[in-house]
């Protein structure tokens, strides 16, 4: 292995901006995400040469070209497999995957499941715009039922998938959601994901201005977002609304929305717990449409040994048990001498 040299100078956003012209449509939500990633990673105290960004195919997957780090723009759906091999080979690296709803959930669905359930230490950013943008506007696996698109002129007839729910069912150890237009929130979630040891999944609700404009307008538009987005905060009650006058509590085994006088929340509101049973996070993920708000923030965050760490441990264990002797290995258990 080549010598690993620490970069002594403090890093800034500029250090992570590549010399490539950013080729997304004007007004695309991807610009905001790129800017926030470039803002957050210099703050992590990790040398630039230790970052690798890996992507698949789709608009979002152009991302690595714009990051002045090591990077790979790979093939459709397979970024997570390449990131997994890289992280297993090189646990010293910080590996990020940038993907989209088609790339991760349709063609790459199998790898998404297995990467998360193994808890390989990779960070997965899924830009969810609910449409195939690069191929010019077909319905995606997150498009709402009945979505009219070039490939579904009478409306889609397949039920959409919820990425957060998929991640939770795959037993991911860090599952979060953020919004392209909310830069503050994005920054805090990106920093949390970067610091998490294990698979970290973030769904970023992202607007495709050309093929699916307004897909997330209830939670993005200034006028409506506070009434429609619920910011999850660990240890705090589930409160939302422009006037902070709505909350979530349990009614039997189901959640319900309760309205109250601002500043006087009822005592029985649910208090968010990132380490609670995955069933709790799953319940939160089911809140998508009014009267329920759309939750953003960290749904679940628990610490478990990572796949790459376990791989390392087994290698260490094997080395301690048996000193590597290549000549003896080649000879095998039974040999004979010919004179």
């Amino acid at each position: 292995m080549p010598e690993i040299t620490a970069n002594p100078a403090p890093l800034t956003r500029k250090d992570f901006v590549s010399d490539q012209w950013v080729r997304w449509c004007p007004g695309c939500g991807d610009f905001a995400i790129l800017a926030q990633v470039q803002n957050v990673i210099p703050t992590l105290g990790i040398p630039r040469e230790k970052f690798v960004f890996v992507s698949g195919i789709g608009c979002s997957s152009r991302f690595p070209y714009y990051m002045n780090t090591f990077g790979m723009h790979t093939i459709h759906g397979r970024a997570m497999t390449i990131a997994t091999g890289l992280k297993c080979a090189r646990p010293d690296l910080q590996v990020w995957v940038v993907t989209g709803d088609g790339d991760a959930l349709s063609i790459g669905g199998n790898h998404f499941l297995h990467t998360l359930r193994r808890n390989t230490d990779v960070k997965v950013l899924l830009f969810n715009n609910r449409i195939y943008g690069l191929t010019k506007g077909q319905a995606s696996p997150t498009s709402e039922l009945g979505k009219k698109s070039k490939s579904s002129p009478m409306g889609t007839i397949d039920r959409p998938i919820n990425p957060v729910r998929f991640a939770l069912a795959s037993e991911a150890t860090f599952v979060a959601r953020s919004i392209d237009t909310d830069v503050e929130h994005q920054r805090s979630i990106l920093a949390r994901a970067a610091q998490h040891k294990g698979s970290a999944f973030i769904e970023i609700l992202q607007n495709c201005i050309v093929f699916n404009d307004g897909a997330w307008s209830p939670v993005e538009d200034r006028a409506t977002r506070d009434d429609n987005a619920l910011k999850l905060e660990h240890g705090k009650p589930l409160i939302f609304g422009k006037n902070r006058d709505k909350g979530i509590r349990m009614k039997g085994l189901s959640p319900e929305v309760v309205t109250f006088e601002p500043g006087k929340p009822p005592a029985d509101l649910i208090v968010h717990d990132e380490q609670a049973s995955p069933a709790f996070a799953y319940m939160l993920s089911e809140m998508e449409k009014p009267p329920f708000p759309h939750p953003v923030g960290v749904f679940r965050c628990v610490v478990e040994p990572t796949y790459d760490q376990r791989m390392d441990e087994q290698i260490e264990q094997a080395r301690k048990a048996r000193a590597p002797d290549l000549a003896a290995l080649l000879a095998g258990p039974e040999t004979w001498e010919v004179q």
């Binding site: 080549p2 690993i4 040299t5 620490a6 630039r48 070209y65 090591f70 990077g71 723009h73 790979t74």
Partner: peptide, 15 residues
């Protein structure tokens, strides 16, 4: 050139 080599940061891909 592999990750970890400072100054050799680069991007490759299928295009």
């Amino acid at each position: 050139a592999v990750p970890g080599m400072a100054g050799f940061e680069h991007r490759i891909g299928g295009i």
